[in-house]
Design a protein around this nucleic acid. Structure first.
Lengths: 219, 219
DNA sequence: ATGTTCTATGAAAACTTGTTCACTGTCAAG
DNA sequence: CTTGACAGTGAACAAGTTTTCATAGAACAT
């Protein structure tokens, strides 16, 4: 997976935000104006790059017509999220859209063969609501059973400052788990909300990816 | 609220479906081809009508650029859904999108002052997944407390054939309630899943609006 | 009958938008 | 130093797309 340059990232984000705010894609000249390019060709080149790098799909000749490709695939099995690159198997854009106060936009969730693919949700700068970058993850495993989060449920993760007691998706030593955040003094632990699990895992390098704000359960 | 003609409805639905499937709006010529009009002006007239009737907003001059306006507002307070017409107060398109297997599209949910506005979700004809016309409702009241559906939760309603035991949104004598469907022989009852509520309400005229498939709970 | 509205045709105009071409400068690798 | 990739300017072209204009039949109320 080729990395995006700073400007390519900015343009892609702007396009997503534009869709989120207006419900239709920006034209090349819209992007040109936003970034104060003197030529449309500057935008054109970046769009080509974005397509070449596989994160954007253009519809040739059609105006304001694009598709986005999920950039991150997360598989939460046994309470562990593994990140995979995109582009391997066919990804449909039909899926589970975001739950929460996310502005109008395209759902960035795809479910295929038991894997819930997620992507950073587009943020609407014009949106007055919060919950930027929220995403959903399907839970596999029972480590949070005491918090009424069961296997098969889908949790909604939102970035933010995690407090003591929050259920967080945390990246621990390269793997992401869903656990409860415990702060004791200046020490931080992660606790599985399952009486059968060992308690209070001490954490070396802790990266909180987000806080579980809500859970979607099948009836 | 002016009523839409059959063709206007069909065109609006097609446009929504197109967005749901492709993530961008159809051009006038796309619509023309779909409905086999001989002139683009036929489509143009219908789009004007749709805008005049307030269900569609066009962006003048811009290609493939539209916004949709929620058509139905539902307020589920005290376990009762009241339908209101649109156009009264300002409606934002930012809101709670659909939960479930809905194709990529615009979230049709708006929350304003404790009212969860819903709209028929766009259906993607190209989508291989089911769950057409699903919508979300916020629950007020405790009549389903025994089914673990509490005040403040959001339930996802999907149309379909309701079976015995399903939790349904049913239109009873002009009002919609959320209850469990009980079939005994050829008789149909609705049962509140709360031990404090009277049991087995017999139903005169029963219109099942949909089946509660999942529930969104705050953590 | 008569006017009005709705729906549609057919063609063209006007504008929007994607795309191409020629050229320039920067920056790092070979 | 040279090469190539990257980013950008400026202009123009070609296609896509909306919009307008002129016209007409059907349905319907007055």
């Amino acid at each position: 997976m080729e990395e995006l340059t700073k400007k390519q990232r900015a343009i892609l984000d702007y396009m997503k935000a534009h869709v989120a705010e207006h419900t239709y894609w920006p034209s090349i000249r819209d992007i040109q104006a936003k970034f104060r390019f003197a030529s449309t060709n500057a935008v054109f080149g970046h769009l080509q790059a974005l397509e070449r790098k596989g994160v954007l799909q253009r519809i040739p000749g059609a105006a304001r017509a694009y598709k986005i490709v999920p950039e991150v695939v997360a598989d939460l099995s046994d309470n562990v999220i593994r990140y995979e690159g995109p582009g391997d198997d066919a990804i449909e854009l039909n899926g589970i859209p975001l739950v929460g106060h996310i502005a109008a936009g395209f759902p960035d969730y795809t479910e295929s063969s038991g894997v819930l693919n997620t992507m950073q949700a587009p943020i609407s700068e014009g949106s007055r609501r919060r919950a930027p970058q929220a995403f959903a993850l399907r839970v596999r495993g029972d480590s949070m059973i005491d918090a009424d989060i069961h296997d098969g449920d889908t949790v909604i993760i939102e970035p933010g400052q995690a407090k003591h007691g929050d259920i967080v998706a945390a990246l621990i030593d390269g793997e992401t788990t869903l656990k409860r955040l415990i702060k004791q003094g200046n020490k931080t632990y992660l606790q599985a909300a399952n009486q059968n699990y060992p308690d209070l895992t001490p954490v070396q390098s802790l990266v909180i990816q987000g806080i579980a704000k809500s859970v979607v359960k099948s009836i």
